[in-house]
């Protein structure tokens, strides 16, 4: 049995027990927050273990509408950043992978794509602050879309470029022989072939933009101009806010991403491994 090529692997009880421990270590902190989100504050601060199910935290978090606006801001930032990164990333990635761009353009582009991910974002905060200020986009969703895009674009471009590199040159040439123009070949032949790349790039950039905090904190004045991550941090500074409400806000921000991790796992894995290598 073990001599066949696809021999079933030996089961090891120790390995499976180790994995149970690992899975618990991952899930427990998340589960604890979600649990607290459904408890009234009395139960949270109590020394006893009581679990009266309660939805009030969520109602209170959304009261007044600011948190809802912050969620909308984040959705806007995610959509804008993903669209910009996919459009620019795929065109520039295609150019790098398939079109032999002139060196005086390609070398600076690759240098920027290599260096930007290495710069700690906080060091750019002073410069970005005065830059956004001078073009009047400080404290706007548009400003945050631009800033998120610049930090994710190197990754998007290089990842798309690696997907385009994987397409055989013959396909491109055949389409050109048929008389299609370069832009047409790109849009109707090449782009549909890298759909997995678009998915991986889009999912990864979307998560990064939804989770972004530092730029949201420093480039907005908080309140209804801020993204959801900054809103959560803001809750902690208000004395009237309870732990249950904080947990509810955190749950609202975290659960969509975890659902994504469950169902778009393959794309996230592709993004995380490639994204981390390149950025």
């Amino acid at each position: 049995m073990t001599s066949t090529a696809s021999a079933p692997r030996k089961r090891s009880v120790l390995v499976e027990i180790g994995l149970v421990v690992a899975i618990i270590l991952v899930i427990l902190p998340v589960a604890w927050m979600v649990l607290l989100a459904f408890l009234p504050n009395v139960a949270i601060v109590s020394t006893k273990w009581i679990f009266p199910f309660w939805l009030g935290n969520f109602a209170q978090v959304f009261e007044g509408g600011v948190f809802g606006i912050q969620i909308l801001n984040s959705v806007g930032i995610v959509v804008g950043t993903v669209v910009l990164c996919l459009v620019i990333g795929s065109i520039s990635g295609y150019s790098l992978a398939k079109l032999n761009p002139p060196r005086w353009l390609a070398i600076p582009a690759l240098a920027l794509a290599g260096i930007i991910p290495l710069i700690p974002p906080a060091t750019l905060v002073p410069g970005l602050y005065v830059t956004l200020n001078s073009i009047g986009l400080l404290g706007t969703v548009w400003g945050l879309i631009l800033v998120n895009t610049v930090f994710n674009l190197p990754f998007a471009t290089l990842l798309m470029s690696s997907y385009f590199s994987g397409i055989p040159e013959e396909l491109r040439e055949a389409a050109l022989m048929d008389g299609a123009s370069e832009p047409k070949v790109f849009a109707s032949v090449m782009l549909p072939l890298v759909r997995p790349g678009l998915a991986a790039t889009g999912v990864f950039v979307g998560i990064m933009a939804w989770n972004e905090f530092l730029m949201g904190l420093t480039m907005t004045s908080g309140g209804p101009t801020a993204p959801v991550t900054v809103g959560i941090a803001g809750f902690l500074q208000q004395y009237s806010v309870t732990w249950g409400q904080l947990s509810a806000a955190g749950t609202v921000a975290a659960i969509p991403m975890i659902v994504l991790a469950i169902f778009a796992n393959r794309h996230i894995v592709a993004g995380l491994t490639a994204g981390s290598v390149k950025g």
Binding site: V87, I88, G89, I91, S92, Y94, S95, L96, L99, N100, P101, P102, L105, A106, A109, L112, A113, L153, T157
Partner: peptide
């Protein structure tokens, strides 16, 4: 190729 790289 050049036009494609410009936005980036």
């Amino acid at each position: 190729a050049a036009i494609g790289l410009l936005p980036f």
